[in-house]
Amino acid sequence: MVMRSPDDWLAILETVPDPEIPVLNVVEMGIVRGVDCTEGGLTVRITPTYMGCPAMDAIADDIRTTLGPFAREESRSLTVELVYSPAWTTDWLDDKAQAKLEAYGIAPPGKTSDKRALNGEAPDIRCPKCKSTETELVSLFGSTACKAHYTCGSCGEPFDHFKCI
């Protein structure tokens, strides 16, 4: 039997959706930081978006459920390891992932290199529905730890914005 490479394992991980934002998978979200194959072992390193993100346990469980049968095929013991460094950043969401978010109805985070965000100024947040930038922050905190709550002044749509960190 040909043993799977780390890239093969990553490809399987791409079938595991984020439990809160199922339009993205855990690799696209940047939660999966890497896969290490050792003699008889397989370690998936994951990092939290936010320290208290309550979805982390569910994500680790989903990874174990999805990879488990494949790992057993190769007689590998599967470990999901939580790492904090490097700290998760929305910059790991590439253009494709950001476009998926917008299509799903969540205004994407943009890039942290946009210094306006760091200075506490609001960058232009585009309404995911009508694309107007006449939007207003309702609350810095939204439906999950990683989102803020906005409303569109043009079409009236309330929507989530993925916080840029």
Binding site: P48, Y50, M51, G52, C53, P54, S139, F141
Partner: peptide
Amino acid sequence: EEDIALTNIGLDQIGQARA
């Protein structure tokens, strides 16, 4: 909104405490 904000901040604090 503030109910959600305060409890979100609390969640971050608990996450930091765990680490």
